[in-house]
């Protein structure tokens, strides 16, 4: 049986690890290479790195990082933030990335998914979708460019387009929940799970192991990403899984 995954998500600015709140203000939380080494030892299932520097939108910082991380981490590594072309994707993969995370570029050039998928396989493309609840209209609005630019696209339409273009997985992030540590947006995760047939990774809001439990038990999400939960406080994936195993949520046996 396929196991559920817990994925530490690491945000980067100038090759420092940071953590944002609602995609806005951030704190420096350490060195990404040392933290990755620790995640490798503490049983994480894979790692996601996103460059969220809004001024420097090139892939150079990610290239520097992946060379170092792939020497010490023997688990799947996904990288994104500023990937705009198939050449960007190729360079990251040749230097040790397993999957490329695309977000803003999808709104400009939907075919980019298909191009990367044809060259490296569907599993190499992870589409990231950032959504914010629009209370007055009671629907989710989509944003690109680290939550700055509103995109006039319907959430479900966008998810289906991504799937049809051949993405291997989708990370669905609630901007409202990011860094709040008050729980995942389970409704948002459910929309993604119910409208696609590819694996969904839920992100944004994990603050306690109970939040992971609720999201795993109440939705069919394949994986959950955590930032603050592991950045702040004495938590790690081993402890998270030890807790969740009590609720019959399956994790890898190693």
């Amino acid at each position: 049986m396929l196991k559920k995954r817990i994925i530490p998500i690491q945000l980067l600015i100038d090759n420092r690890l940071v953590k944002t709140i609602e995609f806005g203000k951030y704190r420096d939380v350490g060195n990404p290479v040392s933290s990755s080494k620790i995640y490798n030892d503490s049983d994480a299932d894979e790692l996601i790195f996103l460059n969220i520097n809004r001024e420097e939108r090139s892939i150079e910082p990610l290239l520097t990082l992946i060379k170092k991380v792939s020497e010490v981490c023997f688990m799947p590594l996904s990288l994104g933030g500023g990937v705009k072309t198939i050449d960007d994707a190729s360079r990251l993969i040749q230097n040790g990335a397993d999957k490329i995370v695309l977000n803003s570029a999808i709104y400009d050039d939907l075919n980019l998914i298909e191009k990367i998928a044809y060259k490296f396989g569907n599993q190499a493309v992870v589409a990231s979708v950032d959504a914010r609840m629009n209370q007055s209209e009671n629907k989710y609005d989509l944003y690109s460019n680290c939550g700055r630019d509103s995109q006039p696209v319907d959430l479900v339409d966008h998810l289906k387009l991504i799937e049809n273009q051949g993405a291997g997985e989708i990370i669905i992030t609630s901007i409202d929940k990011d860094g709040t540590m008050n729980g995942y947006d389970k409704e948002l995760i459910k929309i993604a799970v119910e409208n696609t047939a590819i694996p969904i990774i839920g992100a944004g809001g994990a603050g306690t192991f109970d939040h992971l439990k609720e999201a795993f038990l109440e939705t069919d999400v394949s994986a959950l990403a955590c930032g603050s939960l592991f950045n702040f406080g004495d938590n790690n994936p081993i402890r998270a899984k030890a807790f969740l195993t009590n609720y019959s949520i399956p994790f890898k046996v190693i």
């Binding site: 396929l2 694996p199 994790f251």
Partner: peptide, 15 residues
């Protein structure tokens, strides 16, 4: 084999 519960790609840890 593909259906609603067994999503493809088959991604993750399996025995």
């Amino acid at each position: 084999f593909e259906d609603r519960t067994t999503r493809l790609p088959h991604v993750g840890w399996n025995s």
